[in-house]
């Protein structure tokens, strides 16, 4: 019997850990849980060499493992813990910004994402910050591509609605800055 090749865990980590980290942080909103889940994924792959056999899209497959692990964790925790977590505030998956407007926008965006249902948040995250196609998202989350697309549309509508005042303000400010820059160049 042919033994499956041992997966190169270090390579897998270097190529996918960053994407998995942000995805898990966006789902759990807790760094300790994110670390545990990330370790769980890599331990699982290390333990069972056959898992990656025949896998075409490593990223999608690893996201699937991470998503399933996160769902299991959230189910174990139950509604009580989730509510407590909501009141305790959210851990942002975004880097801190020095510009006050950007800082406010990122904080608002993190909160808006936290308010989305988990299935919409997962799709929105993978499309916007994971750079995955709907086909890859569908493969990762084990849903039809149409469902992935519709969940993304719902998520984006909610985010736009929630962030509209801030976003419009920022767009106006951007336009104002652009006009000012052009005028200075003309002078």
């Amino acid at each position: 019997m042919k033994m499956p090749a041992r997966p190169d865990i270090a390579r897998l980590y270097d190529e996918h850990a960053q994407a998995l980290f942000v995805f898990l942080l966006n789902l759990t909103r807790n760094e300790a849980d994110t670390r545990d889940l990330l370790q769980e994924v890599f331990v699982k792959i290390a333990r069972d060499a056959e898992l990656l056999e025949g896998v075409r899209e490593e990223r999608a497959f690893l996201i699937r493992l991470a998503h399933n692990a996160a769902i299991d964790l959230m189910r174990r925790r139950g509604t009580r813990e989730r509510t407590k977590e909501h009141f305790a505030g959210v851990v942002s998956p975004f880097a801190t910004a020095s510009d006050p407007d950007e800082k406010t926008f990122r904080r608002e965006l993190a909160e808006a994402l936290a308010e989305l249902p988990e299935e919409q948040r997962a799709v929105a995250h993978l499309k916007l910050w994971g750079g995955l196609t709907f086909e890859a998202i569908a493969e990762a989350l084990e849903i039809p591509p149409n469902t992935a697309a519709s969940r993304y549309r719902y998520a984006l509508d909610k985010l736009r609605e929630r962030l509209r005042p801030l976003y419009e303000e920022m767009v106006l400010a951007d336009g104002h800055r652009a006009r000012k820059g052009r005028r200075q160049n003309d002078e």
């Binding site: 960053q18 980290f21 942002s92 926008f105 916007l128 910050w129 976003y167």
Partner: peptide
């Protein structure tokens, strides 16, 4: 969409 996707995420 572009504005959202340009927001930098935290590093592992």
């Amino acid at each position: 969409e572009q504005r959202l996707s340009q927001q930098p995420v935290k590093e592992v």
